[in-house]
């Protein structure tokens, strides 16, 4: 049984259908990439998953529980953390306060302190700047903060929306290294990326979205050498 099973999901924005019945699975321990062009429905998929949008049809099963109708604020407690597109850190709060917002639903202070230590170990720069207002961080640092904040909930599944968007090449590499580390640490990863090449290089499997439908799926290695994919997404 897969950790996450999405089945025939349909989502509308008013009268416009953004998702036209998509299905996919994420197994424990995998890194799954969702790739596709702008407007293909990648972000919509993630938003529906974590309850920010609601679906008109289909189901989302996480660890044998139907979470299709579960409101957004109850999702994180179930073990899914969402690193949103554009980072969406709380600019007015300090770095430390942002991280603590990530642990909002957790009660055990000692456990939270332990997770915080791990996050600081993974992102030493966040510890250096813990008292600083988050809005003053650079784009790459904000992305690290958004990821650190998500890890503070100690998720089983972390979903990331365009983590490399707008970052310099050095930061892009760093972010992908971190995603691999997070995965190696036992957290399952669902990654949405426009940088298909990078995403496929670290993913186990991938799904290709086009205008609200999954048009292709398979092992990342295979997709990387698929001619259509090369042409459409890898710029070769």
């Amino acid at each position: 049984m897969a950790m996450l099973t999405v089945k025939d999901l349909e989502v509308y924005y008013g009268v416009i259908q953004a998702l036209k019945g998509i299905s996919f699975e994420v197994n424990q321990g995998e890194v799954i990439a969702l790739i596709g062009a702008n407007g293909a429905g990648k972000t919509t998929t993630l938003h529906t998953l974590t309850g920010l949008l609601s679906s008109t049809k289909g189901s989302i099963i996480f660890e044998d529980r139907d979470i299709t109708k579960v409101p957004a604020h109850k999702i994180v407690e179930m073990g899914i953390a969402h690193v949103p597109e554009g980072r969406r850190i709380f600019a007015e709060l300090s770095v430390y306060e942002n991280l603590m917002m990530g642990a909002y639903t957790r009660k055990d202070k000692a456990e939270i302190a332990g997770t915080l230590e791990n996050v600081y170990k993974r992102f030493p720069r966040l510890e250096e700047r813990k008292g600083q207002r988050a809005g003053t961080l650079s784009g790459g640092e904000q992305q690290m903060l958004a990821m650190g904040r998500a890890l503070m909930s100690h998720p089983k599944l972390i979903v990331m929306d365009e983590p490399s968007m707008g970052l310099s090449p050095i930061f892009v590499n760093e972010i992908f290294n971190i995603i691999e580390e997070v995965s190696a640490g036992g957290t399952t990863v669902l990654l949405v990326e426009q940088n298909a090449k990078k995403a496929l290089s670290i993913a186990d499997r991938a799904y290709v979205l086009e205008t609200g439908k999954i048009v292709l799926e398979g092992k990342a290695d295979t997709l990387m050498h698929d001619d259509a994919i090369k042409k459409a997404y890898l710029g070769e």
Partner: peptide, 24 residues
Amino acid sequence: TKPGRAMQAVSEDRGAAQLMGVNV
């Protein structure tokens, strides 16, 4: 306080606050 910080978070970004588990 925790509810106070949740207020600040909702004030800045309602969606992101929900993702943190804040009941808006």
